[in-house]
Amino acid sequence: MANKQHTKAKTMQSLFFCIATASVGILFMIMIFLFMEGIPLFKIVSPNDFLLGKYWYPTSDPPDFGIFPLILASLYVTLLSSVIAIPLGVMTAIYLAELASPRVAEIVKPVVELLAALPSVVIGFFGMVIVAPFLQKTFGLATGLNLFNAALMLAFMSIPTICSLSEDAVYSVPTGLKEGSLALGATHWETIIRVILPASVSGISTAVILGMSRAIGETMVVLMVAGGAAMIPGSLFDPVRPLPASIAAEMAEAPFRGDHYYALFATGIVLFLFTLLFNIVADFISHKYRQVGEASL
């Protein structure tokens, strides 16, 4: 009897092991595929020309495969969206964890998290139909589909991530630290600034980076509202073509295993490396600067 149970436990263990390996294995194979389809490009274009080339004319004759404008577009859009999303997300988190009455927090928290459930195509649609004409009229622009619009929409998408992860970080600062500060005659506000925020800074940084990583990889929104011009932007209101938008827009028309096709996969590799870098940094911060709690004795 005992032996039978033992066998059963063993079987279950192997089953779960296989499932876990399969998921990791599939992801790994996708990665291999990405590299296999992208690397042949470098027989035609040097990595240097590919990364730093200023012209992206994949269908001209001869074609130009320089993704520098696309990289810049992605970075600018992500950066600008963080500039908008970080203060909003972190301040909302502090409000929810520290200042809001429990009843208000109970309502607002799920609402913020609900924002994360909005499909990106809906956000993109909103950006196209509402924000773009508004920007165009207000600032007298040639087009409302531009860097600023894309950054704004991406900010909406990353705020829920930044906010809910930061909220967890702020909330998990031990009560002991808070009480210690208040008992020394610090006001609630001083306590937030001088104790709670420094104690949760690693959690907040992780939240910010994960939010940014979501923004840089986001495709649908930038495809719809960024404007799509593969040029180095001269102002906030120039149309741009971030990396994922370029891949999504062109993949259908690129001839299978042609140079253009390889170039798009190589763009995918670059994008992958960006998000990988973001995630590694987030992981590093959350491990190295682990949230410090009360004294462990």
Binding site: P174, G176, L177, E179, G180, S181, A183, V195, P198, A199, V292, E294, A295, L297
Partner: peptide, 8 residues
């Protein structure tokens, strides 16, 4: 307090 709670 009961548990030492120095600030980080």
């Amino acid at each position: 307090f009961q548990k030492p709670n120095p600030f980080p």
